[in-house]
C-alpha cells in the first residue's frame, strides 16, 4: 500500500494537469501568455526531497514516460527531463525537510531548470519557435506564477503523505 502511494499521487497530479486543468480553464491564445501546469513536477521534486534521489528519479521517469507517450509524440524528452530534475533536486537535509520555505524555493528553481531544458531541447528539434526573451516572459513567468501557487497548496498534503509513509515503515520495522 505505502509503496504505491507515491506513484498514485503523482499519477493523479498528472491527470489533473492534462484533463481537469485544461477543461476547466480553457486558455485564450490571444494574450500570448501560456499557463503551463507542472503539478506532477512539484510532486516529483517533493518525492526526491523526502524520499531521496532513487525514489525521486523513479517517480520522475514514471511520470515523464506517461507524458511522452500520451501528450507529446516525441519520446524521451520528458522522461529525461523529469529524471534529471528529480536527481538534481534531491536535497534531503533535515533543515529542508522541516521547512516549507526551502522546499518551495527548490521547486521554484526546479521549475526554472525544467522549463529551460524543455525549451532548449524543443528549440534544437525545431518545435519551439519562440525567441528566448519571449520564452522568459510568456512562459517562464506564467509557469512560476501558476506552479508557485500550486506548490503552496501541495506542500502540506505531500508532507502528510510522506510522514504517513515513514510512520508505516517504522511500524513494519518493529
Amino acid at each position: 500500500m505505502t509503496r504505491f502511494l507515491i506513484p498514485v499521487s503523482v499519477f493523479c497530479l498528472f491527470l489533473i494537469e492534462g484533463t481537469w486543468f485544461e477543461i476547466l480553464f480553457p486558455q485564450e491564445n490571444e494574450s500570448g501568455w501560456v499557463w503551463m501546469p507542472r503539478f506532477a513536477l512539484i510532486g516529483v521534486v517533493l518525492t526526491s526531497i523526502y524520499r531521496g534521489p532513487v525514489a525521486g528519479v523513479w517517480a520522475g521517469i514514471f511520470v515523464g514516460f506517461l507524458y511522452d507517450f500520451t501528450y507529446t509524440q516525441i519520446l524521451g524528452v520528458y522522461t529525461f527531463c523529469f529524471g534529471f530534475i528529480a536527481y538534481v533536486s534531491s536535497y534531503s537535509l533535515p533543515v529542508i525537510r522541516n521547512s516549507y520555505g526551502w522546499q518551495w524555493l527548490i521547486i521554484f528553481c526546479a521549475l526554472f531548470v525544467f522549463e529551460l531544458l524543455i525549451y532548449f531541447i524543443y528549440f534544437l528539434l525545431g518545435i519551439a519557435e519562440l525567441s528566448f526573451g519571449e520564452f522568459l516572459v510568456k512562459r517562464m513567468i506564467a509557469s512560476w506564477l501558476i506552479n508557485g501557487a500550486a506548490a503552496l497548496l501541495l506542500l502540506v498534503p505531500f508532507r502528510r503523505i510522506f510522514e504517513w509513509i515513514e510512520d508505516q515503515e517504522k511500524i513494519r520495522q518493529r
Binding site: E17, G18, E22, I23, V34, M36, P37, Y71, I118, I127
Partner: peptide, 15 residues
C-alpha cells in the same frame, strides 16, 4: 469526447 489537452503548449494536440 475531448479527454485531455497537451498542457505544455509547445505542440498543440488534444486526445
Amino acid at each position: 469526447l475531448v479527454v485531455y489537452r497537451n498542457p505544455d503548449r509547445w505542440t498543440q494536440t488534444i486526445g
